[in-house]
């Protein structure tokens, strides 16, 4: 047999699994810490609060995870979310569309179109994803202001508010929707050729292309899906707030990218998991919630958020370098 003697038998080291474990540890440390410091943290009322406020960041983070896995980035997600909210309210209030759901559908389509445009700019015109989506960010945000005239609009449709505030069997509807989407995209990423191809594209685009994968088509779909999910996040936001404003979801892109990176997805592509993203989203949410419960000033909250992000990602990097050094030494 031709076993190559210069290298040991490579054993899959399950790096992703290890990342997930270190994430889960971060999560547990935070939970224990906040439970110890605040009597209100592990109360039913707060858990319901946490559960019902995860969905916006959580859903948008799915799209961002896909994008990052392909080695791209999308910073237009917050602006697209705001645009979706504005489109809904303006169509309903200013254009007198008969049903808010019709308006919401139009908003989802608008988000998808922005995403498709991103994808076209990146694949056809070879524009760097950061630049392309920076442009889209500016355009979407600008359109949100133009369409709304800078105004906040109230949306008092009780049916529509179910999206962001309703619950089924005590579980917030937005959370159910988010869990459903995570399950769906988990299957897509891990068990469909499309999903596996995304990893291949992010890992080595040229290899993917040479293997006959239609790289551009995949990227187009990924950015369109991200636009769609961002718009959905925007709709949940509007539903929760019962109002839309062009200035909403400011900085959402940073929270989302932070959560995804925290979840172990590599900014250079090829690596990442939705399980990690899911935990990343929860960690950031718990951090915000816990620090607010502890009555920490918002400026220190910013510091704490950044510190946790750097610590978690930093530890993971160190751990990975360790395991890589071990692997090298073995060779």
């Amino acid at each position: 047999m031709n076993r190559i003697e210069s290298a040991p038998l490579p054993v899959p080291r399950g790096r992703q699994a290890a990342t997930t474990i270190s994430l889960a540890a971060t999560f547990l440390i935070l939970v224990v810490f906040f439970a110890w410091r605040s009597p209100n943290f592990l109360t039913a009322i707060n858990l319901v609060n946490l559960a019902s406020t995860l969905a916006i960041v959580g859903i948008v983070a799915i799209g961002e995870t896909l994008v990052l896995i392909t080695g791209g980035v999308d910073i237009s997600v917050g602006a697209v979310a705001a645009l979706a909210g504005v489109v809904t309210s303006v169509l309903l209030l200013n254009y007198g569309w008969p049903s808010i759901w019709l308006c919401a559908l139009a908003a989802l389509i608008a988000g998808t179109i922005v995403g498709l445009t991103n994808g076209l700019l990146i694949t056809r015109f070879k524009i760097n994803p950061l630049i392309a989506t920076l442009g889209a960010y500016s355009i979407a945000r600008g359109l949100a202001f133009v369409l709304s005239g800078g105004q906040t609009n109230l949306l008092n449709d009780p049916g529509f508010q179910f999206l962001g505030r309703g619950a089924i069997a005590g579980i917030p509807f937005s959370l159910l929707l988010m869990l459903l989407l995570y399950a769906l995209f988990w299957v897509v990423l891990n068990h469909t050729p499309f999903g596996r191809n995304l990893y291949a594209i992010g890992s080595n685009r040229e290899a993917a292309r040479l293997s006959g994968i239609r790289v551009n088509r995949h990227l187009l779909v990924v950015y369109a899906v991200t636009g769609l999910l961002s718009a959905l996040g925007g709709l949940i936001n509007v539903s929760q707030l019962a109002s839309s404003a062009p200035r909403s979801a400011v900085g959402l892109e940073f929270t989302v990218i932070a959560a995804v990176v925290l979840g172990g997805t590599s900014l250079s592509g090829g690596k990442g998991s939705l399980v990690g993203t899911f935990i990343g989203v929860i960690i950031l949410r718990i951090l915000d919630n816990g620090l607010t419960l502890l009555n920490i000033s918002s400026f220190w909250q910013d510091v704490a958020r950044g510190t946790v992000l750097l610590l978690a990602v930093g530890f993971d990097q160190i751990r990975q370098r360790w395991s890589e050094r071990e692997a090298r030494r073995g060779q």
Partner: peptide
């Protein structure tokens, strides 16, 4: 030209992953 983060098997079948229904 290979995808370093994927398994040997996936690299072997990259772009031609066998499916059952819509799934790998």
């Amino acid at each position: 030209h290979y995808a370093p983060d994927l398994s040997v098997a996936e690299n072997l079948l990259l772009g031609h992953l066998p499916r059952r229904g819509p799934f790998v």
